[in-house]
Write a protein that binds this DNA or RNA. Sequence first.
DNA 1: TATAATATCGAACAACTTGTTCGGTAACGA
DNA 2: TCGTTACCGAACAAGTTGTTCGATATTATA
Lengths: 187, 187
Amino acid sequence: MDRRQRKTRQAIFSAFIELLSKKEYSQITVAEILEKADVGRATFYAHFETKDYLLKEFCEDLFCHLFDAVSDNEKEHAHIFNCNSKDNVFLHLFSHLQKNDNNLLRLLSCANNQLFLQYFKSNLYNLVERELDKTGDNREQDLPKSYRVNVICACFTETVNWWIENGKKQTPSQLTDYFYKVAKIKK
Amino acid sequence: MDRRQRKTRQAIFSAFIELLSKKEYSQITVAEILEKADVGRATFYAHFETKDYLLKEFCEDLFCHLFDAVSDNEKEHAHIFNCNSKDNVFLHLFSHLQKNDNNLLRLLSCANNQLFLQYFKSNLYNLVERELDKTGDNREQDLPKSYRVNVICACFTETVNWWIENGKKQTPSQLTDYFYKVAKIKK
DNA sequence: TATAATATCGAACAACTTGTTCGGTAACGA
DNA sequence: TCGTTACCGAACAAGTTGTTCGATATTATA
C-alpha cells in the first residue's frame, strides 16, 4: 500500500475515533471527518464507499488486532504484548481492555457502545466456543451448545459494559473472577 | 386526544413497523413513512420532532404495554391477557413474546433487533431487581448487586435473541428452564 | 535520476433529506 | 351550530451525500 494511502487512511481513522468519542455515529457527517482528517472529499470516497463502510473496516481492524493477540497467545504462549503466557484467555482479554489498547475502551464506553459491543460479541463467539470444547464443559449441562455459547458471550460483554459504566474499578483478575462465577465455565 | 391525532399517530406507527421489518432504521426516510402512512409532511413533524423521537415514543409505547402487563399480573394476579397468575414473571414474559403481542417478535427478529433489544433490556432491569430482592438471591453470591442484575438481564435478552434466531422451537416453559439454568436465580 | 503510475486536491455539481412555514380546508368536541 | 384545531400541500432554505474533473504532488521502480 502506497505511503500516501496509509497516511490518509490513518488520518481518517484518527479523526473518526475522535469524533466518535464526542458524538453519536449517526450524527457524524463526512464533512466533519474530512475537516478533522484534513483530507479532500474525493479522497475519502476513494478509500471508503460510504460512512458505514468506514465503520465496518474500522471495527474489523480494531477487533482483529485484539482477538488476534489473544489467539496468538493461546497458540504460542508469547506474543507482541508480552503478556503472562499462563493467563487464561478471558483474563487476557480483560487485561488488554484495561490497557486500553487501540482506544478500545474509549469506544466501548461512548454513546455508540452498542455498535461496538455488537462487533465485539461476534468476535468473541469463536473464542468461547473453542474454550468450551477444550474443557468439555458443554456436555455437563442439558442445554443446546449454541445457546450456551451465546449466553456466555453475552455475560462477558455485559461484564465489560458494566465495568466501564461503573468507573472501571475492578482489576482484570477480579473481573475474571466475577465472570467465571456468573458464566460457570470450568477452569 | 383528538380522534384525528390518534389516527395519524397510529398510521405513522404502522407505517414505521412495516418499514422496520423491511429495512434498516437508518435507511428509512421520513418521506417513506409519510407515503406509507399517507400523511402530510407538516403533520408528521407536528407529532414527532424527528425520526429518532418517533423511534423513542414507539418503543416506549411498545414495551410499556408488555411490562405493565407483567407487573399488573405480579400485583393483582389477573390482568387483561388472562394469563395463569401462578406463572413466574419470566415465564410470563416468554409467553407474551410467544403470543407475539404487539408485533414485538417481528421487530425483535428483524435487522433492527439490537435497537429494540436495547430498549427491552432497560425495561427488564427493574423487573429483575425486584425479583432478586424477593428471593434474597443476591446475598448468596459475592458479587455487586448491579452487576448481577445486569448480567441476568443480558442472559434473558440473549435467551430471547437465541430463541428467535433458532426458529422459536422451544416452548415458554422450556425457555424459562434454560434461563434459570444459566442465570441461576432461586425459584 | 528519470519516468510512469497514481493518490490527492479542490471545486463544482445534482440529487436527496431534513425540518419549517403558511394559507386554506375539513373534522372535531362542546 | 360554532369555535378550535388537526391536517393538507406546496414551497422553501439549509445541509448532506456521493460523483466528476483536470491539475498537482508524491510514490515506486527501473
